[in-house]
């Protein structure tokens, strides 16, 4: 992808809010190590990932400036899941995620985060172009 900063933020918000939410709705009932269907917990984690992600985008965009092609290679958008996942876990474990009082089992966090990351990654690298024909020419801007 060849994102602009504004495009990065718009795409991030869309992907987390729409694709991430849909996936969270589906995956939450089958998460391991939790009682019931903890939507409050998973959507809280998603919110953390989304908000922290917007901040991460500023760093990524700064790094992109050192690339001649001014692109963001596919591999980077996959492996940045590692740093983002680690940070999100610390935020959640430290009790900064809203609406989570009892703590989050690591197994549930990992399954939720990793699958959501992969679904978003796969969607952004192909099917996203189907409804949004102009998206790839606009540096990721949707509006």
């Amino acid at each position: 992808m060849t994102p602009t900063l504004f495009g990065r933020i718009q795409t991030r918000v869309f992907l987390v809010a729409v694709v991430g939410s849909l996936w969270t709705l589906l995956i939450t009932p089958v998460l391991p190590g939790v009682d019931g269907v903890p939507y409050a917990m998973t959507f809280s984690i998603l919110l953390v990932v989304g908000l922290a992600g917007v901040v991460w985008e500023f760093l990524y965009h700064a790094l992109q400036q050192f690339r001649w092609e001014k692109d963001w290679p596919t591999l980077l958008s996959l492996i940045t899941g590692v740093n983002e996942g680690v940070l999100a876990w610390f935020i959640v474990a430290a009790g900064f995620a809203p609406g989570i009082d009892d703590g989050v089992p690591l197994s549930a966090f990992l399954v939720h985060f990793i699958t959501t990351w992969l679904v978003i990654f796969l969607y952004a690298n192909g099917p996203m172009r189907v409804p949004f024909l102009r998206w790839r020419y606009r540096g990721g801007r949707l509006v």
Binding site: M1, T2, P3, T4, L5, G7, W68, E69, K70, D71, R136, Y137, R138, G139
Partner: peptide, 8 residues
């Protein structure tokens, strides 16, 4: 460079 087609 790639971003000439649709980026910054």
């Amino acid at each position: 460079p790639k971003a000439a087609w649709g980026g910054q």
